[in-house]
Design a protein around this nucleic acid. Sequence first.
DNA 1: CATCTGTTGATTGGATCCAATGTTAAGTCT
DNA 2: AGACTTAACATTGGATCCAATCAACAGATG
Lengths: 227, 227
Amino acid sequence: MSTEDGFDFAALVAGGGDRPRTASEFVQRALRTAILEGRIPPGTPLRQEALAAAFDVSRMPVREALRQLEAQALLEFTPHKGAVVAELSAQDQADTYLIRRALEPVALARSIPHLTRDDLDRAEDLIADMDRESDHGRLGELNRRFHLSLYAHAGSPKLLRLVERQLTEHDRYLRFHLAMMGRDRMSQDDHLAMVAAAAARDIEAATVVLQRHIDVAAEDSARFFDR
Amino acid sequence: MSTEDGFDFAALVAGGGDRPRTASEFVQRALRTAILEGRIPPGTPLRQEALAAAFDVSRMPVREALRQLEAQALLEFTPHKGAVVAELSAQDQADTYLIRRALEPVALARSIPHLTRDDLDRAEDLIADMDRESDHGRLGELNRRFHLSLYAHAGSPKLLRLVERQLTEHDRYLRFHLAMMGRDRMSQDDHLAMVAAAAARDIEAATVVLQRHIDVAAEDSARFFDR
DNA sequence: CATCTGTTGATTGGATCCAATGTTAAGTCT
DNA sequence: AGACTTAACATTGGATCCAATCAACAGATG
């Protein structure tokens, strides 16, 4: 059954968390996390019929889910050809870092004055979790949650949603990156330094570290796409 | 016929530009521009049946269009209640400016070295067009195109898409803003200064003007939401 | 032999029908 | 009279069916 059509969609059906109220949302979430975690490789064509069968729904909720994911740039739609999981490209990856570098320091700077001791503790916990975690998919999520925890009090929901989105897209590349680099201790030093600077309410130091953190990650990752 | 259900959807049917290949896309574009240009007020409930009748299609392409617009944050979906045009809020507006201020200078700086004489001429043409234009809806589009024309050569498609999105969302507020302020000569001075700086390849000067331009617009607009 | 064309199969787009849910309003009971 | 229950309606969510489009392949023609 795993040689269906290049990918075993049935494996996606075990949706975690709270069961969504609508089938459309159910499909949307399952596909979304599957794509983000790299479980459906870029370029995979998404046949509506196959997905409908895998999720045991009709084609309609599948179509709605695909439309939503298209608007999130996770897949590409061609009028009468269907949907394909969006490709990863060096250009796209570079752009993601460019955007993160512009947005995240702003979020961090605005958030630092309002961070509580609890927030900082949780951030440190996440760093510890990352040290323990070995699965690449979950590591990306922990990294995302760590960054977001420091930006949480920026008081700009729209900015945060945007940053979150960039971080999730970054996940797709990070996963790819880690898979080739083996386990990395990454920039945990940077992470710790950021928390320390935040605790000291030193906005300047924290943003400098963050920018360098992103720049280094950008350079590292760029190498994997030089081909 | 204009007292249908609070809004005359039939007036949207005259879609400009190239006719889309699919009904879904047709509906999506029409609704999108209508919302952006403020022709459908925030908070308006979008009944699928009414839209389908107005566009002379079935409810299905309408549903797909609504899903896409939801993912673009132009309307809000509630499971069994339906879609409502997204509200404008002071917070959201402030966030939009925050994001623009972070992203646009980056795009401009990267684009300036590659701008051609033609690009600059077109930018100046757009400024002239804005002087002549009186309709608020179109003015917003011209303003958007002006900004984008200066960023066009940034070489970062993803960044540009994001900036374009912020500018279109900004349009909704700009329209609201202009409607109360009467005709304004706005920041055409800033626009001219930006083109001049770009022509001189003076990245520093251009980005400074742009940042101030955005800051001033942010402060101006914020007043209208103090209530 | 290459190219063009017509035909068949696969897949998506759209329409209609039915089920599920939410809302409203009437009616009943305290 | 006020609050709760329940029944009708309106609206959305989902399934199935049909039409339109695209891709692949076979055959004809230069």
